[in-house]
């Protein structure tokens, strides 16, 4: 272990109100910590800034999954395991279940949380592309009250997000996308191995088809830009398109290639990420044609 454990203070309030009060009273002092699956890795490597951490892991107000007719609402501290095993999520939001299943492996899924994954703001996280593709909304809570923001646009730059001082992610609301209403889901995590892998490219797309055309589509990429990437050009190329349009494949490929901003790093190359992004976008089109 490369960190000095005596240089880290951690408190663990028992209620959300207590946590929010602490955040409001001592602004900028406390860094929230959920399941620890990201922060503890940095800690081990000696790369976690020393200071004061607020463990919110035990807060009951931020846990659990509720379902209504239109949407599934997931408490920020819901674990991947709970998401992976949830029947409605598996049925209507299968990409979210798959992202949870492919994050780390079982022991990580038992500890890691969806809210923690969002707030850690890693561009390589597995759930954010699915949340982009599903058009999720975040409810944020602070001592001053709550507000709701669309997930698309929440991340504003590398490790930057629209989270105000003293604010915590409360829950994630995801509109249901049942296949019976014409929704097609396409998720592909390209990691270094089957499990215990960090994404080199992650692709999530959800489209509604009607009359041989694409009525509505949202696409998110992971690991190809400083944040989760909203694939606007790809969405524009597909929205309203006829699936039998012969030029569509080239347009999709070009849009994907154009909008990813991949880099070389320890896990892969920019060339690989760009080429695979293009391949997956085209494969998504093929899936739409097969399913449409």
């Amino acid at each position: 272990m490369r960190a000095n454990v005596a240089s880290y203070d951690v408190v663990a309030p028992e209620t959300l109100a207590e946590a929010l009060t602490l955040l409001a009273d001592e602004p900028g002092v406390w860094t929230p910590m959920a399941g620890g699956t990201d922060l503890m890795v940095l800690f081990e490597a000696g790369k976690l800034p020393t200071g004061r951490y607020l463990s919110i892991h035990g807060l009951p107000e931020l846990r659990g999954i509720t379902v209504d007719d239109d949407a599934v609402t997931i408490g920020a501290l819901t674990t991947y395991s709970e998401i992976r095993d949830h029947a409605v999520i598996n049925a209507d939001l299968p990409m979210l279940a798959q992202a949870a299943r492919e994050t780390g492996a079982l022991a990580i899924q038992n500890r890691g949380t969806l809210g923690g994954n969002i707030a850690n703001a890693s561009p390589a996280a597995d759930s954010p592309p699915a949340l982009v593709a599903y058009g999720a909304e975040l409810t944020l809570v602070s001592a001053a009250g709550t507000r709701t923001v669309p997930y698309r646009g929440f991340h504003t730059g590398y490790k930057q997000m629209d989270l105000r001082p003293g604010e915590l992610i409360h829950s994630i609301r995801v509109p249901r996308r049942p296949a019976s209403e014409g929704w097609v889901h396409f998720y592909r995590k390209v990691g270094t191995r089957a499990y215990q892998a960090i994404s080199k490219v992650c692709f999530a797309a959800c489209a509604r088809l009607s009359d041989g055309g694409v009525a509505e589509v949202r696409v998110g990429f992971g690991s190809v830009a400083p944040t989760v990437l909203i694939a606007s050009a790809l969405e524009a190329a597909l929205t309203g398109a006829r699936l039998d349009d012969a030029g569509l494949e080239a347009a999709v490929a070009a849009a994907a290639r154009h909008e990813v901003a991949a880099i070389d790093d320890i896990r892969s190359t920019a060339r690989y990420r760009t080429q695979v992004s293009e391949n997956l976008a085209v494969a998504f089109l093929h899936a739409l044609r097969a399913g449409g």
Binding site: G36, M40, R111
Partner: peptide
């Protein structure tokens, strides 16, 4: 639940 104890403070 099975966890990695190296990641639990």
């Amino acid at each position: 639940r099975l966890v990695n104890t190296c990641l639990v403070p």
